[in-house]
Every structure is written in structure tokens, then in C-alpha cells.
């Protein structure tokens, strides 16, 4: 069993989600613009949501709402978790944006390096 399960079509979804996650992560840590960082954070967390939802999917199943014609449903638990996580994500974004707006008022810029210069010059 230790041979790598090279089932590319089986893991393709996860890997794309990971690629998206890492793109978001990269934007967060490499960009100095505060709003860009927040966009990156959004990207990062949305891609994690894609990973979670991928875990809950079953081939040939349908949305987890009881009906008479279907009997195989995808796993509803990841959906619930991600519903909560989406709310948490937007809450964080909102607070971050409010901070950004205040920072712009106080510093006149939202670039990290310019803020640092202004702090040091004091």
C-alpha cells in the first residue's frame, strides 16, 4: 500500500485547491499593500473551503436535501463547517478593511514599507 497512489484524477481536485491556497498565501506574504494582503487572505481561505468541500463530495451523489428520487447524498458536515468558516472569513476581512481605512487616514499610505519609514522618522 505504500506505493504512491498515482491516481491523478482522484487527487487532481485537492492539488488544484492547494495550488490556489498557495497563490493566496503568496500574495499575503509577498505583497506590501494592505488591501492586497487582505485579498490574498480571502483567496487563501476560500481555497481551503474548496478543499473541505472536495472532501465531502461523493461521486454520483446529490445535494444533501432529502428527496424521494435520490438516495445518495454528499456529506453535509463539511458544508456546515464551511458555512461557519465563510462567516468568520468575511468578519476578519471587514475588520482588516476597517483597520486599513484608519491606517490610510493616519499615515496617508497603505504600503507597508512607506508606513515603516513614517514610523521610523518619528
Amino acid at each position: 500500500m505504500d506505493s504512491i497512489p498515482m491516481n491523478v484524477s482522484g487527487h487532481f481536485n485537492y492539488w488544484v485547491a492547494i495550488f490556489l491556497m498557495m497563490t493566496g498565501f503568496y500574495v499575503v506574504i509577498s505583497r506590501g499593500n494592505l488591501i492586497k494582503k487582505l485579498i490574498g487572505l480571502n483567496l487563501f481561505s476560500t481555497s481551503v473551503f474548496i478543499l473541505y468541500i472536495s472532501l465531502g463530495k461523493i461521486h454520483g451523489a446529490t445535494a444533501p436535501i432529502a428527496s424521494e428520487t435520490f438516495h445518495l447524498y454528499s456529506n453535509p458536515l463539511p458544508h456546515v463547517l464551511i458555512l461557519t468558516a465563510i462567516v468568520v472569513g468575511v468578519a476578519t476581512t471587514a475588520v482588516g478593511l476597517a483597520l486599513t481605512a484608519r491606517i490610510y487616514e493616519q499615515y496617508g499610505t497603505i504600503e507597508e514599507d512607506e508606513i515603516r519609514i513614517k514610523d521610523e522618522s518619528l
Binding site: 468541500i53 472536495s54 465531502g56 461523493i58 451523489a61 445535494a63 444533501p64 454528499s74 458544508h79 458555512l83
Partner: peptide, 9 residues
């Protein structure tokens, strides 16, 4: 998400 059956999400 819709294509992965997560309609609420």
C-alpha cells in the same frame, strides 16, 4: 461548490 453538491455553501 454547486457542482460539488454544496448548495448552501
Amino acid at each position: 461548490f454547486v457542482s460539488m453538491d454544496a448548495v448552501d455553501v
